[in-house]
Nucleic acid binder design. Structure first.
Length: 428
RNA sequence: GGAGAGGUGGCUGAGCGGUCUAAAGCGGCGGUCUUGAAAACCGCAGGGGGCGUUGCCCUCCGGGGGUUCGAAUCCCUCCCUCUCCGCCA
């Protein structure tokens, strides 16, 4: 959520910036609501003050043994007007917040303006020599490789659950696990993260905190029943919400958290997209990095976080590039996002494998997550998150980049300790 | 699943229809004393919001709803915690 003061005091400026994010703000409506709110709130508080003082007078009169009938009649009448004012005020407030909670975060000054991914700005590339060196045969995609190895079975998964699931087996299942373990070891051992294991089911309040609700309800898997449970779409949700409704001590900051979790997504708007292979699944695993920082530290932290995600790809020797998402391509809660796109020879293109964002105080405001600033009062925290990295897509990338002409897959050096020291995955 | 007990400020914990403007203790901050520290004593301290912003006011006792002139206190409901029993990886 944006600072409501921004919407109240500078609606035009805010609307102009939001326009670059394909978001139209109804400035006139907001101003009307704000005028009504002001008048109603002042009146409501006056009435409440009157009621409180009169009610106390009744108590005092009764305690003194006097007669309070006249006062009681007066306060009863007052209560009627108060009730009316309160309900009108609530109506105005509800409409205001209903609008406010649908508004995306404001982009940082360094974010390129644009409408879609073609306007994203490439920052750098890594590993291109390696990419060029592997042109001695025509690479196939991971789905074909996996099928030939006999270790990747979308048909079996379809029979179990439906489309957009996969069954892995043998060395490929193990490689998947090895990737997750390698990433966790790297982030906890060398990058200083604290490993966290969280619920994979959360309530609606938690999803609201990170911005998935109310606007993106269609992307979530909701569980049947009255409890309002959802499967997490990413570990960003439980990790970030660890500070929900808290005022954390300065000494606790910054927080660096990592979790390996499954992620569940409806992929509601993606019919017919990436139907082959395991690029886009309803269930996938991800190692997620979350930072909770003081406001003054978040921009440096975004660079640090992105570096940690890049380190994963570098150790795996996977060619990639870093792009800054343009205003039109950014996620709802982000102020700035770097995507890491890994090279997939089977598709002959770069595909997203990590997304690192600084959300500023946007999520913190929704979560009421603050810290005690020694120089002042409580202040909203800044939150960042990044994939470090998507495990399923990392498996795809390793398979396609490390494939050999004979259909085998060489195991990257850093994964071999997790693979019984094996050097290759062969059919069998 | 059955039975019961609870959710009050950073923590412990009193209050159970009207000076609650929430006792008291601990912890915290400031001061007195001291070479320094401790002890003792004195004082200050929550979050959110509004407005005519040296100040005044509203709101918050797990969430929501209700009763009442008035609710931390009574009623309904949901959530959470704890104890005992049963079941269970």
């Amino acid at each position: 959520m944006l600072d409501p003061q921004l919407l109240r005091k500078k609606p035009e400026d805010t609307a102009r910036i939001l326009k670059t994010r394909n978001c139209d703000l109804d400035v006139a409506r907001l101003q009307t609501l704000e005028e009504r709110r002001k008048a109603l709130q002042v009146r409501t508080e006056q009435l409440r003050n009157l009621r409180n003082t009169r009610s106390k007078a009744i108590g005092a009169a009764k305690a003194a043994g006097g007669d309070a009938d006249a006062l009681m009649a007066e306060v009863k009448e007052l209560g009627g007007e108060l009730e009316q004012c309160e309900s009108r005020l609530n109506g105005v407030r509800e409409e205001f917040t209903a609008i406010a909670r649908q508004i995306p975060n404001l982009p940082h000054d360094t974010v390129p303006r644009g409408t879609d991914e073609s306007d994203n700005r490439e920052e750098r590339r890594w590993g291109c020599e390696k990419k060029a060196a592997r042109k001695d045969f025509t690479p196939v995609d991971h789905a074909a490789l996996g099928a030939a190895l006999g270790m990747m079975d979308p048909k079996a998964a379809a029979a179990l659950a439906g489309a957009r699931f996969v069954v892995l087996s043998g060395a490929l299942a193990r490689l998947h696990r090895a990737l997750a373990h390698f990433m966790l070891d790297l982030h906890t051992g060398e990058h200083g993260y604290t490993e966290v294991m969280t619920p994979f089911i959360v309530n609606s309040d938690t999803l609201y905190g990170t911005g998935q609700l109310p606007k993106f309800a269609d992307d979530q898997f909701q569980l049947a029943g009255e409890r309002g449970f959802y499967l997490i779409p990413t570990a960003e949700v439980p990790l970030t919400n660890l500070v929900k409704d808290r005022i954390v001590a300065a000494a606790e900051l910054p927080m660096h958290l990592v979790a390996h979790t499954p992620c569940f997504r409806r992929e509601a708007g993606a019919h017919g997209k990436d139907t082959r292979g395991m690029i886009r699944q309803h269930q996938f695993e991800k190692v997620e990095l979350v930072h909770i920082t003081r406001p003054q530290d978040s921009w440096d932290t975004l660079e640090l976080l992105t570096g940690h995600a890049e380190a994963v790809l570098q150790r795996l020797e996977l060619p990639y590039r870093v792009v800054t998402l343009c205003t039109g391509d950014m996620g709802f809660s982000a102020a700035k996002t770097y995507d890491l796109e890994v090279w997939l020879p089977g598709q002959n293109r770069y595909r997203e494998i990590s997304s690192c964002s600084n959300c500023g105080d946007f999520q913190a405001r929704r979560m009421r997550a603050r810290w005690r600033n020694p120089d002042g009062g409580p202040e909203y925290l800044h939150t960042l998150n990044g994939s470090g990295v998507a495990v399923g897509r990392a498996l795809v990338a390793v398979m396609e980049n490390f494939q050999n002409a004979d259909g085998t897959v060489t195991i990257p050096d850093v994964l071999r300790p997790h693979m019984n020291g094996e050097e290759r995955i062969k059919p069998g």
